[in-house]
Amino acid sequence: MSYDAYLGGEPVIITAALTGGVHGKEANPNIPETPEEIGRAAADAEAAGASVVHLHARKPNGERAFSTERFQAITDEVRARTDDIIVQHSTGGTGAPLEVRRQPLRTDPAPEMASLDMGPLNRYDHLTSENTRGMVDSLHDEMVERGIKPELEVFNDGHLNETHQLLDRRSLADPVYATLIFGSGTLTRPRPRNFLNAIDNLPEGARFNTLAFGRHQLPFAAMGMLFGGHVRVGLEDNVYYRRGELAESNAQLVERVADLASLLGREVATTREAREILGLESQR
């Protein structure tokens, strides 16, 4: 993907990361946490232009949940309330063992996509989300068994190496789809030259999605669109609309990047177009 790809005008896929699992309503009371709230947020995001929803599950008190049953309740609500949106489950889970992290892959139907963290990242001062190669391979293999397309989450440049090495170990269906992630801590520093370096080092033919945390969300979405990539926004990654002003909803953040795409001359992908770009078969 490149500036030429931007000029070529491929529609931009907007992924809405609706809830996450790190922060919750204590950070922004508009974050959806219950299955019903997440289902409504997905419908609103779809109406605003999202073609993919990235989902985490939570308990009634907002804490992280990984069970298949809890993911089932959420994905059922999302599927009931949306027209055709692509469902992507998270398999992330700092501190959670492999068997726990497999659970989101086992809903019926399986999600069309699932995230696959490409390596370790630090949390707080004394914790690391390990994501060993063995764990990555195991999660990948179960995704393949269940017909789920992996969304490779690249938190830093070392994870670009890990992405190439995963392709040496496993045969991934085309196109490889990688989310480039920018932020603080273990993540790639959110600087334009780092973004350009990252897209230059993607595997040949890979499509990329652009994710930056906090105030970097909007400028990096703009860069992603200018270089032919796709974008992820949402309250999981950024609870503000602008400095000092909490976002009202996921849809508000989706609508803003959809408007930006239009200004930049890129159409917003429909769910059908997104499936074509990502090589997905509709489960609807």
Binding site: V22, R64, G93, T94, G95, P97, Y124, H126
Partner: peptide, 22 residues
């Protein structure tokens, strides 16, 4: 506390408040 930190507080999964909570 953040939901993820609550798992540290509760020593859930492989998390331990004595080791992981600053």
């Amino acid at each position: 506390v953040q939901p993820m930190r609550a798992d540290i507080c509760n020593d859930r999964y492989d998390l331990d408040h004595e080791a992981h909570c600053e």
